[in-house]
Structure formats: structure tokens, C-alpha cells
Design a protein around this nucleic acid. Structure first.
Lengths: 145, 145
DNA sequence: TTAAAAATGGGGAAAAGTGGTGAATTTTGT
DNA sequence: ACAAAATTCACCACTTTTCCCCATTTTTAA
């Protein structure tokens, strides 16, 4: 289960290092070695473990009717944008330039763990829309706090 | 499984190079050496491995009733437009000029991997209709994000 | 404070992409 | 039908990018 916020940097070679806490999120022994990265909703990227990605593609994406232009665009957005990124021995991965551009990532990065997925943001972009306590007021009751 | 976005160029000789990641998409050892290219839905071309193309033709196209004029047109569009393109030792293929014209391809190209097929776009054309995050909002629930 | 783990920076080898040349085949004109 | 020209095709060589690993710095924990 992914959780938490981290802020590594994009180095000169386009690498982002994935924190060990996230790599260990699915069992202490087996570090995550590979992530599927693609366009996220909002101006960010999302990354999945292979297992989650494959399940998602098979169950949600492949059944979509290709006669609907909107479905075709969605598949292009998600699968056409996807990249299987291997982590090097130090836990870093190279993110393709088209994805970096989409998310507006140039230097500092914010990585969020969100149960089954990871979100990757440009720090500047994320600070613009970072959620604060106020947004929770309408939810507090139904969440049971 | 094809995935990802790539942007090679059409060179002076009408060759487009297919990225190694796509050529390896169906097993590390066996690089794709040949693709069947034909008209795509929307203003692009689509390309298949022989296996996928044959299955598609047999299961979807051949059963179509030839008494329906719409079916006859579909077969002309897909089979009449198809070309078996071999890749050279460097992974490039020559695309017939009628297909280039259909897709409006003159210089820069965008290639998308979409699980069982590859789409080939003119870069200019694709930028005009490139999907963004907004298109996904209506799907978020049903896709399970 | 010290040791271990994690993050960061960098360099070298290998792979992939690109341009180009010569042979072979097809087309054209006489 | 034959020769010349043009186009196509296959492969070679160079440039660029990518990948993988080593070394150093920084952080964390004992």
C-alpha cells in the first residue's frame, strides 16, 4: 500500500529516484523494480506496479468499445502515454520526455503514494493546487472524524 | 503488448523507424520484422503484427455479409488499404504513398503503441487532437481511479 | 559518534537512431 | 527488344542516446 509525500529531484539525466519507503510498500523483502508510468488525471503522472496496471488494462480498458471516439482517445491517453520504466540499482528511473512535458516537470518533483498508485508532480505545479484542511469540511461527517 | 509514444522522423527516402521498444513488445528475443499497415480510424494509420492482422481478418472481416454495401466499403478501406511492410536491418520501413497521404504525413511522425496495434500519426495532425487530462474526467469513476 | 542505508553525481560501454552508398530491379524511351 | 535512367532495396558506418555500474555525499538510526 503506497502512502506519503516525497520530494526528490529530477537530475540532469532525466532520472527521478523513487524513495525506498515506496519501493517497500508491498512487502519488506521485495523492492519494486519496475513501474508503469503514464499520464495522470490533472497535470501529473501516475505510476503503477505491473500487476495493477495489467489488471487495469484488461478489466477496464480493453473492454471499451472502439467505435466511440472518446474511448479511442482515452486509450491513446493512457496506453499510448504509458512507459514501462525499470529502476536502476539505486532505485531511479528515467521518465520519457513527453511525460515530463505533460506534467511540466523540470526540476523539483513531488511524489505521492496513494494506495495502489503513485502520483508524480512538478513541485511548482503541486504547490499551486495543494489541498488544505478546508477542502475536508464538507466530508468530515461522512468520513466519520 | 505495445505501449508508449515515440516520435521518429520520416527521412528523405520515405522511411520511418520503428523504435526497438515496440519491436520487442512481444518477447525480448523475437524482434518484430514485419508489420501490416493500413488505414486507421481517425486520421492515422494502424499497424499490426501478422498474427493479430490474420486473426482480425478471419474473425471480424471475413464473416461480414457482402450484401451490405457498408461492409463492402469497410473491407475496401481496411484490406484494400493494407500493405505488408518489411523492416530493414535498422528497423525502418517504407510506407506506401497513398497511406502517407491519407494520414497527412510529410515530416515528423508520432507512433503510439496501443496493446495489440500501433498507430502512426502525422505529428502536426496529432497535436491538433492530442488527448489531455480533461477527457478523462467523465471516465474516472468507471475506470476506478 | 559511528555505522549503515539511502540519495546523488558521474563516467564508460553498449545499443539504438540516422545518413548515406552501392547493387539490383523496375521503368522509360527509342 | 535493348539500353539508359530512375527508383527501390539492403547493408555499412557514424553519431547520438541510453543504460548500467562505481564512487561520493548525505541522511538515518543505533
Amino acid at each position: 500500500m503506497f502512502m506519503g509525500e516525497y520530494s526528490p529531484a529530477l537530475d540532469d539525466k532525466g532520472r527521478v529516484s523513487i524513495p525506498v519507503k515506496l519501493r517497500k510498500a508491498f512487502g519488506e523483502d521485495a523492492l519494486v523494480e519496475k513501474l508503469v508510468v503514464t499520464h495522470g488525471l490533472d497535470k501529473c503522472l501516475m505510476a503503477f506496479r505491473n500487476e495493477e496496471w495489467n489488471e487495469f488494462v484488461e478489466k477496464k480498458l480493453m473492454p471499451l468499445s472502439q467505435s466511440d471516439p472518446k474511448n479511442r482517445m482515452s486509450v491513446r491517453f493512457l496506453v499510448g502515454g504509458a512507459c514501462e520504466c525499470e529502476l536502476d540499482k539505486q532505485g531511479r528511473m528515467v521518465i520519457p520526455s513527453n511525460l515530463l512535458k505533460y506534467a511540466g516537470i523540470t526540476n523539483d518533483v513531488i511524489i505521492l503514494g496513494l494506495f495502489n498508485k503513485i502520483e508524480i508532480w512538478s513541485k511548482e505545479v503541486y504547490e499551486e493546487c495543494r489541498p488544505d484542511g478546508a477542502i475536508m469540511n464538507s466530508f468530515a461527517d461522512e468520513l466519520g472524524f
